[in-house]
């Protein structure tokens, strides 16, 4: 079986982001970029499945401008066998990403598609569900445990839901999106980073895949969230209880 993993290049999670003065978006020039943390977890899971002998190949896919290749190389250094880069100059909405992925699934025929549950930039949490819907495949979102049964061709997935953990069973092929607790992604070692430079990356354009890049969402403005009024540092528990009771009236 082949596993396809989608990875996204985003502003590093530790960066304190700045909204552009013209309110057109968030400053991304000269800001540290990394692989989306949930995508790292997705890739790690695919690699674990391969190492357990349940998959033959792991293909990492990314979409976006030329520098997304860096993210792909990170994935290859972690252990992905090869990469696919779909070039796109502008930002893609999840629906378009899902349509491009659908075309790639038709070309590559993977038995499993793993994505992160959300990207930490747009916080959408949509792409995995959308690609599953387009393909008519079952979906296991917010996965915190994945067990594959090769003989029965099913995946048993523990999902993190509001009320606790839900267990479901999916017929393969399926789409899985990863939650934080699924695994601890590995670091790419220096020799593997060197080796990754010679692994193949296939390039596509959206025209070659016959997907129209469009968006039915228009960004009107991006603003800073309202600032909270400065708080006070108190000196004792008595003072705290007094403030909560008589100033804030919350207890």
């Amino acid at each position: 079986m082949k596993i396809m993993v989608a990875v996204k290049r985003v502003v590093d999670y530790a960066v304190r982001i700045r909204v552009k003065p013209d309110k057109s978006g968030v400053e991304t020039q000269n800001v540290k970029m990394s692989m989306n943390p949930f995508c790292e977890i997705a890739l790690e899971e695919a690699l674990k499945i391969k190492e357990a002998g349940l998959a033959k190949e792991v293909v990492a896919v990314t979409m976006g401008p030329a520098n997304c290749v860096d993210t792909l190389r990170t994935g290859l250094a972690m252990g992905a066998d090869r990469g696919i880069h779909v070039e796109a100059a502008r930002e893609l909405v999840p629906l378009t990403v899902a349509k491009v992925l659908k075309r790639l699934v038709e070309v590559e025929n993977p038995g499993l598609l793993i994505l992160g549950k959300q990207a930490i930039d747009d916080d959408c949490n949509q792409t995995g569900q959308m690609i599953a819907g387009l393909l008519g495949w079952p979906q296991g979102t917010f996965a915190s445990k994945v067990v594959l049964d090769k003989e029965k061709q099913v995946a048993t997935v523990d999902r993190e839901v509001d009320g606790g953990l839900e267990t479901i069973c999916l017929d393969l092929p399926a789409v899985i999106t990863t939650d934080l607790r699924l695994n601890q992604p590995r670091y790419a070692t220096l020799p593997n980073i060197m080796k990754a430079k010679s692994k193949p990356i296939k390039k596509y354009t959206s025209e070659e895949l016959n997907v129209e890049i469009k968006s039915d969402l228009e960004i009107v403005q991006v603003t800073e969230p309202p600032k909270r009024k400065a708080g006070v540092i108190l000196s004792s528990v008595d003072e705290l209880i007094d403030k909560l009771k008589n100033e804030a009236h919350v207890i």
Binding site: R16, V26, I219, T223, P225
Partner: peptide
């Protein structure tokens, strides 16, 4: 027209649905 948080709530994005 809707407002939604992005970047872990560090920015608010106003979007217009045109579809």
């Amino acid at each position: 027209q809707f407002v939604r948080p992005i970047y872990a709530g560090n920015a608010l994005c106003t979007v217009r649905y045109t579809g």
